[in-house]
Design a protein around this nucleic acid. Sequence first.
DNA 1: TGGCAAAATTGACTGCGGTCAATAATAAAA
DNA 2: TTTTATTATTGACCGCAGTCAATTTTGCCA
Lengths: 192, 192
Amino acid sequence: MAKQMQKRTLETRARLVAVATALVEQHGFAALRTEEVVQGAGVAKGTFFAHFRDKDALMDLLIGAGIDRQLDQLEKAPAPKTVEELVALQMPLIRFMTQERYVFDVILRLSGAAAIAEIGKIATTFGRFLELTTTWFERGHFRRDIPAELQADGMQAFVTQVMALHFCALHEDQGMEERLNIYLRAWLQPIT
Amino acid sequence: MAKQMQKRTLETRARLVAVATALVEQHGFAALRTEEVVQGAGVAKGTFFAHFRDKDALMDLLIGAGIDRQLDQLEKAPAPKTVEELVALQMPLIRFMTQERYVFDVILRLSGAAAIAEIGKIATTFGRFLELTTTWFERGHFRRDIPAELQADGMQAFVTQVMALHFCALHEDQGMEERLNIYLRAWLQPIT
DNA sequence: TGGCAAAATTGACTGCGGTCAATAATAAAA
DNA sequence: TTTTATTATTGACCGCAGTCAATTTTGCCA
């Protein structure tokens, strides 16, 4: 349906993304300036915005790709059987998402698709994460009184909370891994 | 410790806040422009930033005041005994925080104090919310296998998740209240 | 091959948050 | 009252995302 671009278009776009990727690697996400990207790619400012709705759209692409790489790793691993395994398995992903305050902010902002028409990469990865973790819970190693999907949903809520608290001065005493363990034990191994 | 301002300072500050409040009432939070605020208050642009570190600091004040008003109401109510009551009680607060996408974004951004030195109003309200709900759980109407504070912490995670999903096109089918009920039943009334 | 419509590119321009050296108002000391 | 130190205010200026009418490039067809 959507494949009527000129070769030039693809090239320009690829150049923009390549330059942006390199710049991010050098100076981090927060320091990225569209002006630098277009200069590096040898195009005018307007061209950038002909390819990306806004700066967030580029970030969605770059950060989304990073999350996807983490999910690829997660999918390779066997389904965790204990809370400790569950947490340990997710730590690389969590660390990626909290590498910079700015990155976490972008992820929060873009994790829900703003409109059905335009589902971004990050929003897609969140769906993928839910799918994957749901299959974990379907193994039946955790709660049996609620559906696997609800368990996955809840875990996502706790993961988000842990990341948010990581950037919160009042709670920085406790590490993310330790806190997530506490949360998930309470969520997935309740004792009635 | 911090009380050596001139009368003029307090007056200017009050005028800025008053004008901002009026503008927000008319056009919402997202539409607020610092330029309009200073014009309405009859001061120069720089004066605004002598009183507030940035625009977010003003928003922190305005939105924080709104949350505080909701918490005042919450404190008046008797401690809820069922999940349904728990959810219903919080809905006004939740609706306030999700009145605008922009408001929710600001809250997320400012809910954790960036630095210990400067704890904003919104961050303070989050602490207040936790304190209040912890007392609810201390009544013992819900889980007994985990401390009241952890129950409150988890509830906050679910409330945040519900609000985030509210702005997410993929999940807008379900209402916030219904979804929160499902989450909190699973969190607070597990069946082993 | 020349002509033409669609698609891609351009860069000056706008909007808006935020800065800062200069200036003015205020309170305290002489 | 005059001098002096502190605090508040000013507004021109900057950085950076995002816009758009004008221009160039491309692919297509006669």
